[in-house]
């Protein structure tokens, strides 16, 4: 066989190998919003993707981190500003607000009533389901630090890590789907 041809073939094989290795059946979501509706959408997509046999990684940052707080857990040793942040932001998935029609809680109550009637799982249930299905939650260390949240006050979740943007980027690079919610 032609030597030049063989060389090209080898090169192509290498490139294909790289491509195959590069993109896995994996999805990475940036969960940024602390709105109940957007969080719900993120969790539905995440759990749905596990049914498609995809590996799912969620990167929780900024306002979304508040939704991971466990209302039953309290931590000591926070400074004044951290305490204020903790007080102002929703404590857990049950307390997050709607992005529209919140109406001082009335809108949310109505929507939750409807969801129950229509068999739509609550946000809290979705977190539980996601945990059971092996969805990984990575929490942005910087956001936690900024808002004064501590690891000890987050919900008990099977696969949860505190990490930085590097983790997100390396996961996103390998993922077929990346979304920002």
């Amino acid at each position: 066989m032609d030597i030049e041809f063989e060389k090209q073939l080898e090169e192509l094989k290498k490139k294909i190998g790289k491509l195959e290795k590069g993109r896995k059946d994996k999805m990475t979501l940036v969960v940024f919003s602390g709105d109940m509706d957007k969080l719900l959408a993120a969790m539905i997509i995440a759990t749905g993707a596990t049914a498609m046999d995809m590996e799912v990684k969620l990167f929780f940052t900024f306002w979304a981190t508040a939704a991971l707080r466990d209302p039953k857990k309290n931590v000591k040793g926070k400074n004044f500003i951290s305490k204020m942040f903790g007080f102002m932001l929703p404590k857990g998935a049950k307390k997050v607000k709607l992005s529209k029609m919140q109406m001082g809680g009335m809108g949310k109550a109505m929507l939750e009533g409807l969801m129950k009637k229509k068999g739509i799982a609550s946000l809290e249930d979705m977190f539980k389901t996601a945990g059971e299905l092996g969805v990984e939650i990575n929490v942005c260390e910087m956001s936690m630090n900024l808002m004064g949240f501590k690891k000890e006050e987050l919900i008990d979740y099977p696969k949860m890590n505190i990490c930085g943007v590097g983790t997100f980027l390396s996961d996103a690079e390998e993922s077929k789907i990346q979304l920002f919610i």
Partner: peptide
């Protein structure tokens, strides 16, 4: 029956 998206999909899986 009675579950909404993504319930049926997860049940099937």
């Amino acid at each position: 029956r009675g579950t909404a998206c993504p319930g049926p999909l997860l049940a099937a899986k």
